[in-house]
Design a binder for these strands. Structure first.
Lengths: 203, 203
DNA sequence: ACGAAAATGGACCTGCAAGTCCAAAAACCG
DNA sequence: CGGTTTTTGGACTTGCAGGTCCATTTTCGT
């Protein structure tokens, strides 16, 4: 196979991805020229096309994957341990804190709308991210149902879908308005609603 | 003033905006060249820059405003008449129907992420759209509270913020995954939650 | 009808950013 | 070590899309 990557090469490749990702978060996909990436990572055009033969498209794809992974790992270990109400609140706090800190510089912003159009494969990456994300939430709900903290009658998948959508919309509105209020409202009200269902036994 | 626009001119200008909007919905902002707009609307380059002296940026801004208005007017008259539970469900159905029909060709997709970066003013347009949208929902909730159909104890603005975020996220996920499930789940569960609060009197 | 202002068509210019190419340097491996 | 492969630098090419310009036609107001 053509699988040949020196240790140094591996490092350079990683540096390019990380640098490009950072640059894109800062300025947006279509404001970032390959030249910017070169300057920011101390590389040459030859290197870019050496490690990403498909040019910008290939690079964007790699960046998209990098960012998608980051989004989830930033929520760990909370996201994978939604096993009690305090754990849910800790996860909530982590989300708020994270998005508040990053403000407008959101990797999702780049991934969706922008990268998605150019690189067809990026669509798949986003879909995969959402799927994994929702799956984690679903498992959290199921666990709470198994312990009786959430009414077993509700459809865990459907509830997770709604919560995930709320989060995405909250982040979107954070990007548009600069205010975190929507994200907060969604998280608090949705989680409250899950707790309420347990109390009232609403089917 | 330089305010001079013949009847014919007005028509041409409108045709350009409508055509550009359609083209952008179809292929995305950065896939649409001025040449495409010209071909699609039967206009010349001279006309484009005659009606939009700021070039592509100005045109995009006009398109953004056009699309933003469309988003809300598409929800009328339901959105402004959220005065009973059947009315809420009718609104819900209209939303589902509308977004199901338009599928991936979403004006918001163009407005956010893409137009937003290029034209600073587009950000303001999106913010304005969200604000008006949320205001309409808030008023719906307040009305239901006044008739006792929703518990007066809940924060109408906060609930509306959460619902709006859910809708945005639902649409976003529709764009990513092609499935309407998230939007449906958000609408149904959120509205159900509002009704439940009325029954249980949960504060 | 007629002069002024607006509308239209399209040739032309220009800058820029992606992509190509190759030659030199460094790393790898037995 | 020495041959081979990878890595690197950067000059050069190319295509294209946005923007400029102006000559011509149409519309408008009186």
């Amino acid at each position: 196979m053509t699988r040949a990557l020196t240790r140094k090469g591996e490092a350079t490749r990683a540096r390019i991805i990380a640098g490009a990702a950072s640059e894109i978060r800062e300025r947006g996909v279509d404001e970032v020229r390959l030249e910017d990436v070169m300057a920011h990572t101390g590389t040459s055009k030859g290197q870019l096309f050496h490690y990403f033969p498909d040019g910008k498209e290939g690079l964007l794809l790699a960046v998209a994957q990098h960012e998608a992974d980051q989004v989830l790992s930033d929520q760990e270990p909370m996201l994978s341990n939604l096993t009690s109400w305090p754990a849910w609140l800790a996860w909530r706090d982590r989300l708020i804190e994270r998005y508040l800190a990053q403000g407008v510089k959101c990797p999702l912003n780049g991934l969706l709308g922008q990268t998605g159009r150019r690189a067809p494969g990026a669509q798949a990456i986003v879909t995969g991210l959402m799927w994994r994300w929702q799956k984690a939430i679903t498992e959290g709900i199921r666990h709470m149902q198994s312990t009786g903290d959430i009414d077993p009658g509700i459809d865990a998948d459907r509830a997770a879908a709604a919560l995930l959508a709320g989060i995405q919309g909250g982040v979107l509105l954070l990007l548009s308005t600069g205010k975190i209020d929507h994200l907060e409202a969604v998280l608090d009200l949705t989680i409250d609603s899950l707790r309420a269902d347990a109390r009232t036994g609403g089917s």
